[in-house]
């Protein structure tokens, strides 16, 4: 891409995105967010603030929730990235997505991809979170529409779906 040719060398970065191996030629300081959106055409991660404050760009990097606007692409060399596009299972909604849909956890939807990944990360670490733990787990994801109440309900519903009890049924 001519647009990206600047003073310094391009770097070749190999990473895995949603279980697919990808190689990008890019300036090393390009933000992961921009590589996802511009080079890989995965536009699910959004830029809300560009300073790690709103969480709309959140993705999973080696299983950890990160703000992709604050990750220089070179630091993803060899990393595994999961974006909102990689959450659904066999084209079916992930239970978290289903719960956000049913509980009214998404209104305008712009924070939703980041919010769902933050929830995914939270439930990986704490499968049955308390309300306080949910508030902490999602406090880096700003939502201006919901007042968060329906988002908490969505997380609680997703956690309930994932209880061992329902798995055995």
């Amino acid at each position: 891409m001519q647009a990206d040719r600047g003073k310094f060398e391009m770097t070749r970065v190999a990473l895995t995105v949603n279980d697919e191996k990808r190689i990008v030629e890019t300036p090393p300081m390009k933000r992961l967010l921009d590589v996802l959106r511009e080079d890989l055409h995965l536009t699910g991660a959004k830029e809300g603030c560009g300073e790690g404050e709103c969480g709309a760009c959140a993705v999973l990097m080696n299983g950890d929730l990160v703000n992709s606007c604050l990750v220089p692409i070179l630091q993803t060399q060899g990393a595994e990235i999961i974006t909102i596009e990689g959450i659904a299972i066999d084209k079916k909604l992930h239970p978290i997505q289903q719960c956000f849909l049913e509980q009214g956890g998404a209104q305008c939807g712009i924070c939703t991809p980041g919010m769902i990944l933050a929830t995914y990360h939270l439930l990986e670490n704490i499968p049955q979170p308390t309300l306080l733990q949910i508030q902490e787990g999602l406090n880096g994801n700003l939502c201006r529409c919901t007042g968060y109440m329906r988002i908490f309900n969505s997380v609680l519903a997703a956690a309930a779906k994932a209880t061992p009890q329902s798995e055995t049924q």
């Binding site: 990206d4 040719r5 600047g6 003073k7 310094f8 060398e9 770097t11 300036p27 090393p28 300081m29 390009k30 933000r31 921009d34 830029e47 560009g50 220089p72 070179l74 630091q75 060399q77």
Partner: peptide, 13 residues
């Protein structure tokens, strides 16, 4: 995004 990333160098030893 108010910077031009092509002006920056990053190395990762």
């Amino acid at each position: 995004m108010r910077s031009n990333v092509t002006e920056y160098e990053l190395t990762a030893p």
